[in-house]
Design a binder for these strands. Structure first.
Length: 245
DNA sequence: AACTTCGTCAACCGCACAATC
DNA sequence: TGATTGTGCGGTTGACGAAGT
Protein backbone atom coordinates (compact mmCIF):
# COMPACT_ATOMS: atom_id res chain seq x y z
CA UNK A 1 0.00 0.00 0.00
CA UNK A 2 1.22 3.45 -0.84
CA UNK A 3 1.63 5.72 2.12
CA UNK A 4 0.42 9.23 2.16
CA UNK A 5 3.34 11.63 2.36
CA UNK A 6 4.09 12.69 5.88
CA UNK A 7 3.30 16.19 7.05
CA UNK A 8 6.86 17.33 7.14
CA UNK A 9 7.71 16.45 3.56
CA UNK A 10 4.64 18.36 2.44
CA UNK A 11 5.77 21.44 4.30
CA UNK A 12 3.04 21.07 6.85
CA UNK A 13 3.33 22.08 10.44
CA UNK A 14 3.91 19.65 13.28
CA UNK A 15 4.00 19.91 17.04
CA UNK A 16 1.75 21.64 19.55
CA UNK A 17 -1.32 23.41 18.27
CA UNK A 18 -1.77 27.14 18.76
CA UNK A 19 -4.97 28.83 19.90
CA UNK A 20 -5.47 30.23 16.45
CA UNK A 21 -5.18 26.83 14.84
CA UNK A 22 -7.59 25.39 17.35
CA UNK A 23 -10.04 28.16 16.66
CA UNK A 24 -9.82 27.65 12.92
CA UNK A 25 -10.35 23.93 13.27
CA UNK A 26 -13.27 24.29 15.66
CA UNK A 27 -14.91 26.91 13.47
CA UNK A 28 -14.55 24.79 10.39
CA UNK A 29 -15.72 21.52 11.89
CA UNK A 30 -18.70 23.05 13.65
CA UNK A 31 -19.72 24.77 10.44
CA UNK A 32 -18.98 22.18 7.81
CA UNK A 33 -18.43 18.95 9.72
CA UNK A 34 -15.59 16.57 9.04
CA UNK A 35 -16.54 14.34 6.17
CA UNK A 36 -13.05 14.30 4.74
CA UNK A 37 -10.18 14.80 7.13
CA UNK A 38 -7.64 14.73 4.38
CA UNK A 39 -9.21 17.63 2.56
CA UNK A 40 -10.19 19.49 5.69
CA UNK A 41 -6.96 21.33 6.51
CA UNK A 42 -6.70 22.71 3.01
CA UNK A 43 -10.30 23.85 3.03
CA UNK A 44 -10.00 25.29 6.51
CA UNK A 45 -6.70 27.01 5.75
CA UNK A 46 -4.59 25.02 8.16
CA UNK A 47 -0.98 24.05 7.57
CA UNK A 48 -1.59 20.66 9.10
CA UNK A 49 -2.16 17.19 7.77
CA UNK A 50 -5.64 15.72 8.03
CA UNK A 51 -4.48 13.16 10.49
CA UNK A 52 -3.19 15.81 12.84
CA UNK A 53 -6.45 17.73 12.56
CA UNK A 54 -8.50 14.66 13.28
CA UNK A 55 -6.41 13.81 16.31
CA UNK A 56 -6.63 17.33 17.66
CA UNK A 57 -10.37 17.38 17.23
CA UNK A 58 -11.02 13.93 18.62
CA UNK A 59 -8.70 14.21 21.59
CA UNK A 60 -9.00 17.83 22.54
CA UNK A 61 -11.44 20.08 20.74
CA UNK A 62 -14.57 17.99 20.56
CA UNK A 63 -17.30 19.72 22.56
CA UNK A 64 -18.27 16.59 24.49
CA UNK A 65 -14.77 15.97 25.82
CA UNK A 66 -14.69 15.61 29.56
CA UNK A 67 -11.56 17.22 30.96
CA UNK A 68 -9.98 16.73 34.35
CA UNK A 69 -9.14 13.87 36.59
CA UNK A 70 -10.65 10.48 36.14
CA UNK A 71 -13.09 9.44 38.83
CA UNK A 72 -12.67 6.22 40.75
CA UNK A 73 -15.56 4.76 38.82
CA UNK A 74 -13.93 5.61 35.53
CA UNK A 75 -10.65 4.11 36.64
CA UNK A 76 -12.39 0.97 37.76
CA UNK A 77 -14.13 0.68 34.45
CA UNK A 78 -10.86 1.04 32.63
CA UNK A 79 -9.22 -1.60 34.77
CA UNK A 80 -11.96 -4.12 34.37
CA UNK A 81 -12.30 -3.57 30.66
CA UNK A 82 -8.57 -3.65 30.14
CA UNK A 83 -8.39 -6.94 32.01
CA UNK A 84 -11.02 -8.32 29.68
CA UNK A 85 -10.13 -6.67 26.39
CA UNK A 86 -6.47 -5.82 26.59
CA UNK A 87 -5.13 -2.69 24.92
CA UNK A 88 -8.28 -1.98 22.98
CA UNK A 89 -8.38 1.62 24.00
CA UNK A 90 -11.03 2.75 21.60
CA UNK A 91 -13.40 0.02 22.77
CA UNK A 92 -12.70 0.95 26.36
CA UNK A 93 -13.18 4.62 25.53
CA UNK A 94 -16.58 3.85 24.05
CA UNK A 95 -17.69 2.82 27.52
CA UNK A 96 -16.54 6.10 29.04
CA UNK A 97 -18.47 9.02 27.57
CA UNK A 98 -16.34 12.09 27.13
CA UNK A 99 -13.05 10.26 27.46
CA UNK A 100 -10.75 9.56 24.56
CA UNK A 101 -8.75 6.48 23.78
CA UNK A 102 -5.58 8.53 24.01
CA UNK A 103 -6.47 9.84 27.43
CA UNK A 104 -7.38 6.39 28.69
CA UNK A 105 -4.17 4.98 27.31
CA UNK A 106 -2.20 7.66 29.13
CA UNK A 107 -4.01 7.07 32.39
CA UNK A 108 -3.43 3.37 32.10
CA UNK A 109 0.28 3.73 31.52
CA UNK A 110 0.84 6.41 34.13
CA UNK A 111 -1.47 5.31 36.95
CA UNK A 112 -3.41 2.15 36.63
CA UNK A 113 -0.92 -0.31 35.22
CA UNK A 114 1.31 -0.03 38.25
CA UNK A 115 -1.52 -0.81 40.61
CA UNK A 116 -2.87 -3.74 38.69
CA UNK A 117 0.33 -5.49 37.71
CA UNK A 118 0.86 -7.87 40.51
CA UNK A 119 1.82 -10.97 38.55
CA UNK A 120 1.15 -13.64 41.10
CA UNK A 121 -2.27 -12.37 41.89
CA UNK A 122 -4.62 -14.27 39.63
CA UNK A 123 -7.04 -15.76 42.12
CA UNK A 124 -5.04 -14.97 45.19
CA UNK A 125 -4.71 -11.66 46.90
CA UNK A 126 -2.46 -10.68 49.69
CA UNK A 127 -4.76 -8.99 52.07
CA UNK A 128 -8.16 -9.02 53.64
CA UNK A 129 -9.87 -6.75 56.08
CA UNK A 130 -10.27 -9.47 58.68
CA UNK A 131 -6.54 -10.13 58.65
CA UNK A 132 -5.16 -6.64 59.22
CA UNK A 133 -1.82 -8.02 60.30
CA UNK A 134 -1.29 -9.22 56.75
CA UNK A 135 -1.98 -5.89 55.19
CA UNK A 136 0.81 -3.88 53.73
CA UNK A 137 0.19 -0.24 53.11
CA UNK A 138 0.78 -0.55 49.38
CA UNK A 139 -1.73 -3.37 49.17
CA UNK A 140 -4.61 -1.53 50.70
CA UNK A 141 -5.72 -0.34 47.33
CA UNK A 142 -5.88 -3.87 46.02
CA UNK A 143 -7.91 -5.45 48.77
CA UNK A 144 -10.78 -7.53 47.49
CA UNK A 145 -13.35 -6.87 50.16
CA UNK A 146 -14.59 -3.39 50.78
CA UNK A 147 -14.80 -2.63 54.45
CA UNK A 148 -17.71 -0.70 55.84
CA UNK A 149 -15.51 2.33 56.31
CA UNK A 150 -14.26 2.19 52.76
CA UNK A 151 -17.80 1.94 51.52
CA UNK A 152 -18.53 5.14 53.30
CA UNK A 153 -15.51 6.65 51.69
CA UNK A 154 -16.87 5.51 48.40
CA UNK A 155 -19.92 7.63 48.90
CA UNK A 156 -18.00 10.67 49.90
CA UNK A 157 -15.25 10.32 47.36
CA UNK A 158 -17.06 9.46 44.21
CA UNK A 159 -19.18 12.55 43.84
CA UNK A 160 -21.03 10.83 41.03
CA UNK A 161 -23.73 9.30 43.13
CA UNK A 162 -23.42 5.80 44.38
CA UNK A 163 -25.43 3.47 42.30
CA UNK A 164 -23.52 0.40 43.37
CA UNK A 165 -22.78 1.23 46.95
CA UNK A 166 -21.21 -1.63 48.81
CA UNK A 167 -20.35 -3.50 45.67
CA UNK A 168 -16.92 -4.53 44.61
CA UNK A 169 -16.99 -2.08 41.80
CA UNK A 170 -17.93 0.87 43.82
CA UNK A 171 -15.38 0.67 46.55
CA UNK A 172 -12.71 3.25 45.92
CA UNK A 173 -10.28 1.73 48.34
CA UNK A 174 -10.61 -1.70 46.87
CA UNK A 175 -10.85 -1.29 43.21
CA UNK A 176 -7.79 -2.36 41.32
CA UNK A 177 -6.96 -5.72 42.79
CA UNK A 178 -10.49 -6.85 43.07
CA UNK A 179 -11.28 -6.18 39.50
CA UNK A 180 -8.18 -7.78 38.08
CA UNK A 181 -8.62 -10.73 40.35
CA UNK A 182 -12.02 -11.44 38.99
CA UNK A 183 -11.30 -10.59 35.43
CA UNK A 184 -8.11 -12.58 35.34
CA UNK A 185 -10.30 -15.63 35.25
CA UNK A 186 -11.41 -14.58 31.82
CA UNK A 187 -8.05 -13.71 30.40
CA UNK A 188 -7.19 -15.44 27.17
CA UNK A 189 -10.67 -16.57 26.49
CA UNK A 190 -11.40 -15.05 23.12
CA UNK A 191 -15.02 -16.10 23.07
CA UNK A 192 -15.57 -14.22 26.28
CA UNK A 193 -13.80 -11.18 24.98
CA UNK A 194 -16.10 -11.04 22.01
CA UNK A 195 -19.06 -10.89 24.33
CA UNK A 196 -17.49 -8.44 26.67
CA UNK A 197 -17.18 -5.91 23.93
CA UNK A 198 -20.92 -5.72 23.66
CA UNK A 199 -21.50 -4.99 27.30
CA UNK A 200 -22.13 -1.72 28.98
CA UNK A 201 -21.50 -0.36 32.42
CA UNK A 202 -24.86 -1.45 33.73
CA UNK A 203 -24.07 -4.99 32.89
CA UNK A 204 -20.80 -4.88 34.76
CA UNK A 205 -22.31 -3.13 37.72
CA UNK A 206 -24.90 -5.82 37.94
CA UNK A 207 -22.48 -8.68 37.61
CA UNK A 208 -20.17 -7.38 40.26
CA UNK A 209 -22.75 -5.85 42.52
CA UNK A 210 -23.10 -6.66 46.18
CA UNK A 211 -24.46 -10.03 47.09
CA UNK A 212 -24.42 -11.27 43.54
CA UNK A 213 -20.70 -11.07 43.18
CA UNK A 214 -18.97 -13.57 45.39
CA UNK A 215 -16.93 -14.04 48.47
CA UNK A 216 -13.44 -14.60 49.68
CA UNK A 217 -12.03 -17.68 51.27
CA UNK A 218 -8.58 -18.10 52.69
CA UNK A 219 -6.11 -20.17 50.79
CA UNK A 220 -2.35 -20.60 50.84
CA UNK A 221 -1.82 -17.53 52.89
CA UNK A 222 -3.86 -15.51 50.48
CA UNK A 223 -7.50 -15.41 49.53
CA UNK A 224 -9.46 -16.94 46.75
CA UNK A 225 -12.39 -15.21 45.19
CA UNK A 226 -15.35 -17.54 44.86
CA UNK A 227 -18.00 -16.52 42.44
CA UNK A 228 -21.59 -16.85 43.47
CA UNK A 229 -24.01 -18.68 41.26
CA UNK A 230 -25.21 -15.66 39.34
CA UNK A 231 -21.76 -14.51 38.54
CA UNK A 232 -20.64 -18.07 37.80
CA UNK A 233 -23.55 -18.32 35.40
CA UNK A 234 -22.41 -15.29 33.46
CA UNK A 235 -18.85 -16.40 33.49
CA UNK A 236 -19.69 -19.86 32.23
CA UNK A 237 -22.12 -18.56 29.67
CA UNK A 238 -19.59 -16.15 28.29
CA UNK A 239 -16.92 -18.81 28.25
CA UNK A 240 -19.24 -21.06 26.27
CA UNK A 241 -19.92 -18.25 23.87
CA UNK A 242 -23.64 -18.10 24.54
CA UNK A 243 -25.57 -15.33 22.90
CA UNK A 244 -26.59 -13.28 25.87
CA UNK A 245 -27.32 -9.86 24.54
C1' DA B 1 20.42 27.47 43.18
C1' DA B 2 21.57 24.00 39.97
C1' DC B 3 21.02 19.67 38.38
C1' DT B 4 18.74 15.21 37.82
C1' DT B 5 14.95 12.18 37.83
C1' DC B 6 10.24 11.22 37.39
C1' DG B 7 5.43 11.75 36.00
C1' DT B 8 2.21 13.44 32.82
C1' DC B 9 0.11 14.12 28.54
C1' DA B 10 -0.27 15.98 23.79
C1' DA B 11 1.09 14.63 19.55
C1' DC B 12 3.33 11.82 16.05
C1' DC B 13 4.26 7.44 13.60
C1' DG B 14 3.30 3.36 11.31
C1' DC B 15 0.24 -0.33 10.60
C1' DA B 16 -4.25 -2.45 9.50
C1' DC B 17 -8.42 -2.38 7.40
C1' DA B 18 -12.47 -0.87 4.88
C1' DA B 19 -14.06 1.67 1.06
C1' DT B 20 -13.50 3.09 -3.44
C1' DC B 21 -11.63 3.11 -8.01
C1' DT C 1 -9.47 -8.41 -8.52
C1' DG C 2 -5.78 -5.70 -7.43
C1' DA C 3 -4.38 -0.95 -6.55
C1' DT C 4 -5.22 3.17 -4.17
C1' DT C 5 -7.00 6.13 -0.65
C1' DG C 6 -8.82 7.56 3.78
C1' DT C 7 -9.48 6.65 8.43
C1' DG C 8 -8.88 4.67 12.94
C1' DC C 9 -6.09 2.44 16.22
C1' DG C 10 -2.31 1.36 19.34
C1' DG C 11 2.52 2.17 20.37
C1' DT C 12 5.80 5.46 21.23
C1' DT C 13 8.09 9.86 21.78
C1' DG C 14 9.32 14.20 23.55
C1' DA C 15 8.32 18.52 25.91
C1' DC C 16 7.35 20.30 30.13
C1' DG C 17 6.68 20.88 35.02
C1' DA C 18 7.17 18.95 39.67
C1' DA C 19 9.74 16.68 42.99
C1' DG C 20 13.93 15.11 44.78
C1' DT C 21 18.97 15.48 45.65
Amino acid sequence: MVRAPCCESMGLKKGPWTRDEDQILVNYVTTYGHDNWRALPKLAGLQRCGKSCRLRWVNYLRPDIKRGKFTREEEQTIIQLHAALGNRWSTIASQLPGRTDNEIKNVWHTHLKKRVNKPEKEYLVSNYQHQPSKLKEEDIETSLIPSSSSSKQSESNSGNGDQTSGSLLSSPQHSYGEISSVISMNKGDMQVLGKLEQMDDDFWSEIFSGERSGELTEKDGGYKFNMHDDMQFWFNALTRGDELL
